[in-house]
């Protein structure tokens, strides 16, 4: 896991797909345009030997930034122990190209993106909700989705909350 090697690869990748390299604490981040993510993933796999999309997730910058989401990919190579992070900015309603064709392991992660953030992945073989029930409304990990806090039952509101519960038969 030599730092130099990863920097070189990141720079080479950024040059080929028109990205921008930065350093974020312990990650080497390449910011890539949405349309070129599949191309970038293919280059990572074929030219630099990355074998797995270790993690795919997103961050919601609601009311802080346009475009609204950052999809964050973490790629890893078992052979050289290289780790690289790709970030892609996506706006609400835009479709993220699916990388399942390149890294099949991203399958469930992309379904999770769709489920929890409402970012659809175009070309995904099985885009359904994965964690929430099928009839769930909304996407829980969006910042505009409430946490769903419920009041704890104390003495002063005991009766009110008790009324919502199933009463015992005895």
């Amino acid at each position: 896991m030599s730092e130099e090697r990863i920097q070189q690869m990141a720079a080479a990748l950024a040059e080929r797909v028109g990205g921008e390299v930065s350093r974020d604490n312990n990650q080497t981040v390449v910011r890539v345009a949405r349309e070129r993510i599949v191309e970038a993933a293919t280059i990572l796999r074929d030219a630099f030997g990355f074998q797995v999309a270790e993690d795919v997730t997103a961050v919601d910058y609601w009311q802080r930034r346009e475009p609204r989401f950052d999809v964050v990919y973490h790629f890893f190579s078992y052979e050289h122990s290289d780790a690289i992070t790709l970030r892609v900015a996506v706006d609400d309603g835009e479709t993220m190209p699916s990388i399942t064709g390149v890294f099949p392991g991203a399958n469930w992660y992309e379904r999770e993106l769709f489920d929890m953030f409402g970012i659809p992945c175009g070309g995904h073989p099985d885009l359904r909700r994965i964690i929430m029930p099928y009839d769930w409304e909304g996407h829980p990990l969006r910042k505009d989705y409430p946490l769903g806090y419920e009041e704890p039952q104390f003495t002063f509101n005991f009766d009110e909350i008790q009324a919502r519960k199933v009463q015992g038969k005895r």
Partner: peptide, 16 residues
Amino acid sequence: NNYAILQGVDEIIPVD
């Protein structure tokens, strides 16, 4: 205390 978890199973079944 969030959207995903039932705040006590006594909301759906009687508990002894």
